[in-house]
């Protein structure tokens, strides 16, 4: 199942300056009853986004027409908690291609990459700059360049490099997923199994 390719992206940002955003907030458990991957974007950040009467909460950033874009900028330790890949499906379904934070939870990072959503980890200082720039001008854009592994605040030219392993970078650039790779290693799997204790 090919994932959507990623090369470079220039976009305005959606700021969410909250730390420790857990996957229960990204997509609450009661929406995990579906058996397909579609439709989760509608419930992205459901309980921060809508009140008990299902009316949009005006003070939540996704309901603020000032902000839009394919880049979500989140506080430190983004994506902690539950392993639910539904969180990545919800972000992708909403149209997010990049999440920027100064720290990501491991499982979320893997799930995002497996769905063509690029986690970009920056320094605390760069993250603060980014929040400040968006606060000053909601139309400010960033450019995320996967081949160069860089993120640039276009207005000032401030830029930082981010890490991604060569394998995952290649997958994202070409739209490959891990199953393609694993199935190509069938001989090694069979050889390993001959040595297996279990």
């Amino acid at each position: 199942m090919a994932i959507e390719k990623f090369s470079t992206l220039t976009s305005t940002c959606i700021p969410l300056a909250i730390e420790n955003v857990d996957t229960d907030q990204i997509i609450p458990a009661r929406f995990l009853k579906a058996t397909t991957k579609e439709g989760f974007g509608d419930n992205l950040f459901r309980d921060w986004r809508y009140d008990k009467q299902d009316q949009p909460k005006a003070d939540f950033v996704l309901n603020d027409p000032t902000y839009s874009g394919q880049v979500l900028v989140g506080g430190k330790n983004f994506g902690s908690g539950s392993s639910r890949e539904h969180a990545a499906w919800a972000l992708a379904g909403y149209g997010i291609r990049v999440v920027v934070s100064s720290f990501f939870a491991d499982i979320f990072k893997g799930n995002a990459l497996n769905n063509g959503v690029l986690p970009v980890q920056v320094s605390d200082g760069f993250l603060s700059q980014l929040f400040a720039a968006i606060d000053t001008d909601a139309q400010t854009t960033v450019t995320v360049d996967l081949p160069a592994q860089s993120i640039t605040l276009d207005a000032t030219g401030a830029s930082e490099n981010f890490e991604i392993n060569g394998y995952k970078k290649n997958c994202l650039a070409n739209g490959y997923d891990d199953i393609d790779y694993l199935l190509s290693n069938k001989a090694q799997i069979e050889a390993w199994e001959k040595t297996s204790f279990y």
Partner: peptide, 10 residues
């Protein structure tokens, strides 16, 4: 360790 659904498939 816990994994996502893509990894369950793998």
């Amino acid at each position: 360790f816990g994994i996502g659904t893509s990894e369950v498939e793998m």
